[in-house]
Design a protein around this nucleic acid. Structure first.
Lengths: 222, 222
DNA sequence: GTTTGTGAAGTTATTCACAGCG
DNA sequence: CGCTGTGAATAACTTCACAAAC
């Protein structure tokens, strides 16, 4: 269920702001979807609502967290501590709720030894030894494209079974390894599609009612 | 059509590697989808394939580019030149194929005047004057969450009609403004979902065949 | 009265399967 | 022959609408 993370974020904000209950309609507004959809989605997890008053935010959040596996504690290593890697490793979304930074690695000698948040950047050559002591579950690759496949091979070799690849290159991994390729510029291309069908000189007369391109609605992380 | 950017990326790589034609099955493999889906998707754009041999990569790419609006030249401003903003502004995906960096802005005096790629970071206070000269079409917000709404208001006030928000806060904008909220940690949560249904101690016996979580398959930008 | 949970209806997307073109 | 393009069949998803629960 691809909308679960969205509900999770919204509920997290509601819990933090002290809201005790929320109706499907309120949740739907915040997630920018239909209220029935929210109810169908949530009924998939079980009957957690109270008719007449809505859902208990804290109770519902804990169940979504469990469903998403955010009640676990997966060690995550970050490879490639450039601008993007640093941004990811420091972001609350990547360092809380189910995940724990277990190591930051790079090959640039001027980066090795520096600190990012509370963590010290180590040389990639130390990775295998570190992994033997504290085996990482997830590897986040934010290296240049040319290095990504080698890094992926080393991660897989060290037993990492899940990869998140931000480098703009398609990776080959064994079938038992979970891989998600992430391309930040896809968002811009989607925007471009709507832009061109709305503002483009060549299509100024397009009258088809395009749906409003509303993406995920993240809420404030801690 | 949400898969168009994926095909675009794959075709871009194929064209660069000198591949002249590609069959729907090859494309499907690379995009990790079904071959009929590729054909249906592409037939939506018109009849660009040649029966018996496949699609001309260059010809097809140019048509997808046109459909996505990547043949236009939208000026993009980046607000918030921290780690993420810098990573985005430097990435090929954000600075080519339909987009042009028209300005980088921040409020940190130690950042103002520094260069990112070929561009100089300017103070946010200069934005309105700059925008009057070269009106930006798209604004990319990569500020801290607390600043995001103010920045969005200023961008909209200056006539920007499309926003891409990477700050973890839901923005309110007038209905004529296109807004996409992007949350980088959603990818990790999706991974977490699969992780927990595969590796989690509590569900080690789950036998339902989860689909392999393969995301977008970006290819090397120039 | 309010709001959930859910069958039924409606809609959209995916896959099949094959005629028709190169 | 190989491969596209596409109607028909299938499946997935979304919305409606309302009975049951609080």
């Amino acid at each position: 269920m691809a909308r679960l993370p969205v509900y999770q974020r919204i509920l997290l904000e509601l819990v933090r702001s002290g809201t005790a209950t929320v109706s499907s309609e309120q949740l739907a507004d915040m997630a920018r979807v239909n209220a029935s959809k929210v109810r169908k989605d949530l009924s998939f997890l079980g009957s957690f609502g109270t008719r007449g008053s809505g859902y208990d935010t804290e109770f519902l959040l804990s169940h979504i967290d469990k469903e998403l596996g955010l009640d676990a504690d997966w060690p995550v290593v970050f490879i490639g501590i450039g601008n993007l890697g640093r941004a990811l490793a420091r972001s609350q979304g990547f360092t809380s709720r189910g995940f724990r930074v277990s190591g930051l690695y790079d090959v640039a000698t001027e980066l090795v030894g520096t600190t990012v948040g509370v963590h010290v950047v180590r040389h990639l050559d130390d990775f295998e030894a570190d992994a033997a002591v504290d085996p990482p579950a997830v590897g986040v690759i934010a290296t240049p494209a040319a290095a990504a496949q080698d890094v992926a091979d080393r991660l897989v070799g060290a037993g990492v079974r899940s990869l998140l690849n931000f480098a703009p290159r398609v990776l080959r991994v064994p079938s038992h390894v979970l891989l998600r390729q992430v391309d930040l510029s896809i968002e811009l291309q989607v925007l471009s599609f709507y832009l061109s069908h709305r503002d483009h000189p060549a299509s100024a007369s397009v009258s088809s009612p395009l749906p409003h391109p509303v993406g995920l609605s993240p809420v404030e992380p801690g």
